[in-house]
Simulated scan of single mutants.
Amino acid sequence: MRLLLVRHGQTPSNVDFLLDTAVPGPGLTALGERQAAALPEALADEDIEALYASTLIRTQLTAAPLAAARGLDIVVRDGIREVSAGDLEMLDGHSEAGRTYMETIFAWPAGDTELRMPGGESGAEVLARYDAVVAEAAALGVGTAALVSHGAVIRLWTSARADNIDIGFAAARPLDNTGVVVLEGSPADGWKVLSWEGAVVDSAGRGAQSGPAGRPLDEVE
């Protein structure tokens, strides 16, 4: 199975660099709407047969042009929403809150899945809910499914489940709005990342951990 993990288009909270993870969340900016409108052409070579979005409005708005272009229904699932910021909700991602958020997330694929976001979810809970939606899509028997989701949770799930990248790779490579990670595999056999925002991925990469906007964590103030 080919799995496309697509980050949503730009939101006002992205512009203000806020840890905005609660449902239903904001809509898209004018730029975000243009990014969403460009997705059908950007993914023209992908034979997408199933399309999912999270319970946050921004993913559904991002998926809408693609759904219209392909004649697909958008399947909304809570399992692929963003990692809840808990007590850090709506705090400045440039602050210590942003550091805590990302350090917690990237502790999970390293094995500390019982660690809990302050006032929020544990890694085990986040991965389980995301796994469930991926398994549902795989059970459809389609060749390609697209999940319109969120930057941090895509990086988390991919670094935890793909065989050919590690935490350093995902931590050092933030996803732009409407950035796409392409994987191949199945829940039973495992996953391999084929490309990360258009760049071919051959093997595990290394890099410094990064904050919510991709800045190295030692630069987050």
Rank of each mutant, 00 (worst) to 15 (best):
V134N: 04
G214Y: 11
V153T: 14
R7H: 04
F17R: 15
E89P: 04
E82G: 02
V182L: 04
V134M: 05
A160H: 09
G198Q: 02
Y101K: 11
A162T: 11
D45Y: 00
D87V: 00
L72D: 01
G123C: 03
A42L: 15
W196I: 02
A132H: 08
G207M: 10
R77D: 02
E49F: 02
G71E: 02
L194G: 00
G27T: 09
A137V: 01
E89R: 04
T11C: 09
L43Y: 08
P174D: 05
G205F: 11
D16A: 15
Q10T: 12
V126N: 00
D218A: 10
A30S: 13
M90L: 15
T55W: 07
R215S: 06
D73Y: 03
E219A: 12
G123F: 05
E125C: 00
V142Q: 06
L5R: 10
P65S: 08
R155I: 07
A152C: 11
I167A: 12
A67W: 12
E82Y: 04
P24W: 02
L175V: 07
L5Y: 06
A162E: 12
G143P: 12
V126I: 11
A139N: 06
D78S: 13
A37L: 11
E46H: 11
V153H: 04
F169T: 01
Q35D: 01
V220M: 11
M117V: 12
V142F: 10
V201N: 05
L72R: 03
A128K: 14
A172Q: 03
A67K: 10
L217E: 01
T178W: 00
P174G: 07
N177V: 03
E114N: 12
L91E: 11
A145R: 14
P40T: 07
D166K: 13
W108H: 10
E41Q: 13
E125Q: 15
R206W: 04
V181L: 08
R2I: 08
P174R: 14
A30D: 15
P24F: 03
E103I: 00
G168I: 10
D87G: 10
N14T: 07
L72E: 03
Y52I: 09
S210C: 14
T158I: 06
V133T: 08
I57A: 07
E221H: 11
A69L: 07
G32L: 06
A44L: 04
V201M: 05
G151A: 08
E46W: 09
G71V: 08
L72P: 01
T113R: 15
D163F: 05
A85I: 07
T178F: 02
M117L: 02
V15N: 07
G27M: 06
V193P: 10
D78H: 14
G168N: 08
A145I: 12
Q209H: 11
L19V: 07
E197W: 00
R77C: 00
A67Q: 08
F106W: 13
T62Y: 14
L115N: 01
E219I: 01
V200Y: 01
L3E: 00
A152Y: 09
S159E: 03
A97K: 13
V193E: 04
A170D: 03
V15I: 13
P40H: 05
D112S: 09
V75T: 15
L147M: 13
G111K: 13
G86K: 10
R81A: 06
A138H: 15
L127H: 09
I165S: 05
V153G: 02
V181C: 06
V126S: 02
